[in-house]
Design a binder for these strands. Sequence first.
DNA 1: AATACGGGGGT
DNA 2: ACCCCAGTATT
Length: 370
Amino acid sequence: MGRLPARLREKLITWYDANARDLPFRRTRDPYAIWVAEVMLQQTRVETVLPYFARFLERFPTAEALAGSSEQDVLTMWSGLGYYRRARLLHQGAMHVRDVHAGKVPADVEAIRAIPGVGPYTTGAIASQAFGLAAPLVDGNVARLFSRLFAIEEDVKKGKGLARVWALAAELVKGERPGTLNNALMELGATVCVPREPRCLLCPVRPECAAKKAGKERELPIVTEKPIRPKIVEIAAILTMAGSDDVLLARCAPSAKSRLFVGLWEPLRVTTRDVHAARAMLESSLGIDVKLDDVPVRRVEHVLTHRHLDVSVHRGTIARAPRLPSLPSLMKSKRTEHDERYDELAFVSLSKLGERGVSSLAKKLLGVRR
DNA sequence: AATACGGGGGT
DNA sequence: ACCCCAGTATT
């Protein structure tokens, strides 16, 4: 292992003590609260998480409370946050902690790592921040910071470069206040060693920075690939029953084709721009007579990591309450080209949308403001 | 090792 | 438009 610059830990911790943002999940040592925060923070900005964190803990104050709640209630509290699998895994994790650890988050690195939804990063975060264990942690901020601090030329997001970053984090975390050290690395990456235009004048470890020495602080980190976002054109059906204002929503089930929005309640969508084809697909999959307006009420664009959805929203009515066909019959129907399959249907008043787990896309499709 | 998962804010 | 975020599970 390469030697770390002298006093690096101390400089980072001193800087953190003087410059850290005051965040609610840094004010607690409750491992459950820290766990919830860390899961919410996966791939999600701090500012986005804050209101969700407060509401979630109020609704589910303990791991026991979360474990005793329904997945539906958990998804409702998660509505709009995205990456909904996190919410379902957090719920499963709470049940795991209840059943395996008597409701208390274990103060053991391996046991923490074994909790559903808790990966390498979250393990380090919980272990170091809640229990003061010298467990390393690498997130996007730490990877970027290290790529500059140690002038790592490989892509630090994967493979060998990532392994090197983890090894460095593991070295650095050995010592006093591991939780603070980890937080200092992330805080420095988030506020000073930012992706573009790093604010080196404010950096406490500028003298130690290999990239700065080489004048390469703006060239690092090396990025080796950018994702593509294919555009997918769809039609969404806002279906109401004749004589009612309630809209028909369907709960998404995992399918071979898609695991998008699993467990959430969404308006029906089909992958076609043709209204007549859409109606035929809805009829064949729902087994009901569907009337769909020719003219869309609105058009919605929604960008996800790997897709760019372009959805025409059509109002429609159905003559009677639909009956959901069995899953096997859907599987056999080659004319059914839904993005996802559904396992339940319900009519929901728009005013009671907040009582369901719905995606941000669903709110846009329904014309409800976020 | 690659891919699928949401959504939002910064440039 | 493009970047990328306090990542994890699955293939």
